[in-house]
C-alpha cells in the first residue's frame, strides 16, 4: 500500500479532510453537517493514515511513544484512548441534554447567542447545540476508530 503516490496523496488529503470536517462540525446546527458527519469524515482521515503508514504510525511518529508490536490491540494505549473518547463524548452529549433541566426547561432544549462585530466573521452565532454535537462527534470518532484499529489489527 505504501507507494510514493499513496504517501504523497495522503499528506495532501488528510489536512483537507480535517478542515472540511471542522467546518461541517461548526455549521452543523443550521446548515447540512453536524457532529455525526464530521466524526465520520475525521475517521476517514485516520483510515487513510492507517492504510498508508500502518497501524503503529500514530503512536510512534506522531505521539513519540515506543510501541510493542506484539501487543493485543484492545489493550493498546491508543485504543484505550479511543474508548475514553467514546465515553467522554457520551457524557458530554447526555450532560448537555441535562443542563436545560436546571433552568426548568425540557430535556435537550437548545438556545443560541449571536455576537456582532467579531473580527473576520462579523456576525457569529454560537448555538448550545454545539455542545451536544461535540459529544456526538467524540462518540462517532471514538467508536469508529476503536472498531477500525481492533479489527484492522486482526
Amino acid at each position: 500500500m505504501t507507494t510514493v503516490i499513496m504517501r504523497t496523496t495522503a499528506r495532501a488529503v488528510v489536512p483537507i479532510i480535517f478542515v472540511v470536517a471542522a467546518s461541517l462540525f461548526v455549521e452543523g446546527h443550521n446548515l447540512p453537517g453536524g457532529g455525526f458527519i464530521a466524526g465520520v469524515l475525521t475517521t476517514t482521515a485516520f483510515a487513510i493514515i492507517y492504510l498508508t503508514f500502518g497501524l503503529d504510525f500514530l503512536e510512534r511518529a506522531v505521539l513519540g511513544r515506543d510501541v510493542d508490536p506484539g501487543k493485543e490491540p484492545a489493550r493498546d494505549r491508543i485504543v484505550v484512548a479511543y474508548h475514553r473518547l467514546f465515553a467522554f463524548g457520551l457524557t458530554v452529549a447526555v450532560g448537555s441534554g441535562l443542563v436545560p433541566l436546571l433552568f426548568g426547561r425540557p430535556f435537550l432544549t437548545q438556545t443560541f447567542v449571536e455576537f456582532e462585530g467579531v473580527p473576520i466573521y462579523h456576525h457569529l452565532e454560537v448555538a448550545s447545540a454545539l455542545a451536544f454535537d461535540l459529544g456526538v462527534y467524540c462518540v462517532v470518532v471514538g467508536g469508529l476508530l476503536t472498531i477500525l484499529s481492533v479489527v484492522g489489527a486482526e
Binding site: 465515553a87 457520551l90 457524557t91 447526555v94 441535562l98 425540557p106 430535556f107
Partner: peptide, 22 residues
C-alpha cells in the same frame, strides 16, 4: 410531565456513569 421522562433519564445516566467507571 417530568415524571414521564424520569425513568429514561435515570437509566441513561446510569448507563453513561457505569461506562465512565469502567
Amino acid at each position: 410531565a417530568q415524571l414521564v421522562i424520569a425513568p429514561m433519564l435515570i437509566v441513561l445516566a446510569t448507563a453513561v456513569a457505569t461506562l465512565l467507571l469502567g
